[in-house]
């Protein structure tokens, strides 16, 4: 007979694991990826593949040769980062090499430098995206026009937000377009319905809770609504606000990143509120047309503080 195992209780474990969580997040990102490929064609597919591959490769290289520890690439977290990074860039030919730099920053600086999965204070994909946005402003804001094409040279156009910042919303963009994804923008953020589909899956799997997305989108809706009521000329209407740009993607996938968001439910509500508020502030009064990634990055920084303030309600007081 074998030696008896001895440990403290409990002796059973639920079938949850980090690996399962990460692969489920990957699965939840698939609808948005399909929409991206449908609208931006082969470029979107190639950018995603390159981004994911370079994230995985960088993590493997760093673990193997710098940290000299067993590799953890199979837990799927590098793939999540890779997909989210790809979703945050326009699907253009230039991106095929730029995104590799983004992956290096995301994995090397934002994640592994802090000790790997679970120890990074900021969402790696967002750090990567912001690095690229500041370093390659032209390429990062050259948006391909949506429409399926096998060709690499797609026509370029503007995003609804970019156009609005310049003057007014293009007349041909309807709410339905934004909902389905027939608008310009970063490849993963265009279709609200694909993102919501993934988010519902994550909610059912109890990987995310409703607190952050609802607080984020709700705050953005209410705040932009107030502004719109004050002056519908200068401010975008609230429904269009939440369906364009990165709010949906950010609220459902980026802000809900477990590692960089607060743990207590009250903390998550504050976190979501802060994200929504900052997004609208940056969109309306900032230099950039879009503020989701900056908003989430700032709130990531506040997370340790929120974890300290927002404690769960104790049973026995």
């Amino acid at each position: 007979m074998n030696l008896l195992n001895i440990s403290g209780s409990p002796h059973v474990h639920s079938d949850e694991s980090t690996k399962k969580i990460m692969w489920r997040v990957n699965l939840a990102l698939v609808p948005a990826l399909i929409v991206a490929i449908t609208f931006f064609g082969v470029n979107a597919l190639l950018v995603s593949l390159i981004s994911v591959a370079s994230c995985v490769l960088f993590q493997w290289l760093i673990e193997k040769f710098i940290l000299k520890q067993p590799t953890t690439v199979w837990d799927g977290s590098a793939i999540v980062t890779g997909l989210l990074l790809a979703f945050n860039v326009p699907a253009t030919v230039d991106m095929m090499w730029i995104v590799v730099i983004g992956a290096l920053v995301a994995i090397g600086i934002a994640k592994m430098a802090f000790g790997g999965l679970g120890k990074n204070p900021f969402n790696p994909a967002i750090v990567g995206r912001i690095f690229l946005l500041i370093s390659f402003p032209v390429q990062m804001t050259t948006w391909p026009k949506p429409g399926f094409t096998m060709s690499f040279d797609a026509a370029t156009g503007a995003t609804p937000l970019g156009a609005f910042k310049e003057g007014a919303l293009p007349a041909d963009v309807t709410l339905m377009d934004a909902f389905l994804g027939h608008i310009g923008g970063s490849m993963g953020e265009i279709s609200a319905i694909a993102i919501l589909l993934g988010a519902i899956y994550l909610l059912c799997r109890k990987i995310i809770t409703w607190h952050i997305p609802v607080a984020f989108i709700g705050t953005a809706f209410v705040f932009s609504g107030i502004l719109w009521l004050v002056n519908p000329e200068t401010y975008m209407d609230p429904v269009m606000t939440i369906f364009t740009g990165g709010i949906m993607l950010g609220a459902c996938f980026m802000a809900t990143d477990m590692v960089t968001s607060p743990m207590a439910k009250s903390g998550q509500l504050i976190f979501g509120f802060g994200c929504g508020l900052l997004t609208i502030v940056i969109r309306n009064w900032g230099a950039y047309p879009e503020g989701v990634s900056f908003a989430i990055l700032i709130m990531n920084g506040v997370t340790p503080l929120l974890n300290r303030w927002c404690k769960p309600k104790r049973f026995a007081v």
Binding site: N2, L3, L4, N5, I6, S7, G8
Partner: peptide, 13 residues
């Protein structure tokens, strides 16, 4: 060796 300890790696525990 009569058993295989499988818990927290701490002598105190």
């Amino acid at each position: 060796r009569r058993s295989n300890y499988d818990g927290l790696k701490s002598c105190a525990f």
